[in-house]
Every structure is written in C-alpha cells, then in structure tokens.
Amino acid sequence: MIEEPKTGMNIIVKTVTRLTTGLILLFGIYIVFHGHILSEGGFAGGVVIALSFIHLMLAYGREIVLKKMSEKVSELLGNIGAVIFIIIAVLGLFTGGYLFFDFFGKGKPFNLFSAGLMPLYNIAISLIVGAGLFTVFVTLVFFRSEKK
C-alpha cells in the first residue's frame, strides 16, 4: 500500500498533477519559442510556465517545489531576464547607432530562428514574467501564513 502523504492534496490529485505538469511546462516553452510565428508571445508563455510550478505547489505542498525552484533562484532568473533585455537593447546602440537596433538580419521567414531579435526578446520577457509571477505567488500565499 502507498502510505498517506503528510502534505498536499490526496492521491488522485497528485497522480494527475504528476502526469500533466511536465506537459504544461513543455507547452509554455513551446509558446515562448514559437512566439514570432504563431499568435502568442513571451507574456503568455511565461505565465504558463509559472502556472506549471504553481500547479505542482498546490498539489504537493511547498517544500517539494521549493527544493526544485526556491524563491531565491526564481528572483535571480527574473533579474537575469531583465539584464538580457537591456543588454540586447544596448548592443543595438553600439552596432547600429540607436536602441533596439536589429543587428541579426531577418533570416528565412517561418523558420524557428528568424525575424531577427524577436525570439530573444520573447525569451527575456518570458523569464521576467514567469519568474516574477512565481515569486509573487510564493511570497503572497505561503510566506504570509508562516508564524515566523
């Protein structure tokens, strides 16, 4: 028999979560990388990635998820996304003369690596949005209920 777990919801919710969380995470990454071809973007993909972690956290409890992705790491990822965005913007200033200059060239349309710098901007925006929303969720929901 499977012993009754101490934290989280019951066994049905945990099994369904274990089967679906990876697919949700993969779908978020797919949305982010195909943002310039399909009708999506970095914002929706980042929110879906954050939702996959939140899904895991609601079903399994806080400790298991914070072992995989602690709030310090999540904050760091968000800051890295912001730094990537600004570095790309300023690189355009040095190569082309103005901010946000597209120095990659357009590439072949409808390919994954095309449309200049748009995939990189999408990745940076998804990092900021996903990590930021996950951090806000952890801080608002779990840290407030602690008795210190």
Partner: peptide, 14 residues
C-alpha cells in the same frame, strides 16, 4: 520590414 508573418508580434516587438 520585420521578417515575421505575425503582425501583432511585429508591432509589439519591433
């Protein structure tokens, strides 16, 4: 001008 078929993303990111 931008090389993407998605006009919404072309406006948003270019």
């Amino acid at each position: 001008q931008t090389g993407t078929a998605n006009t919404v993303v072309a406006i948003l990111l270019n």
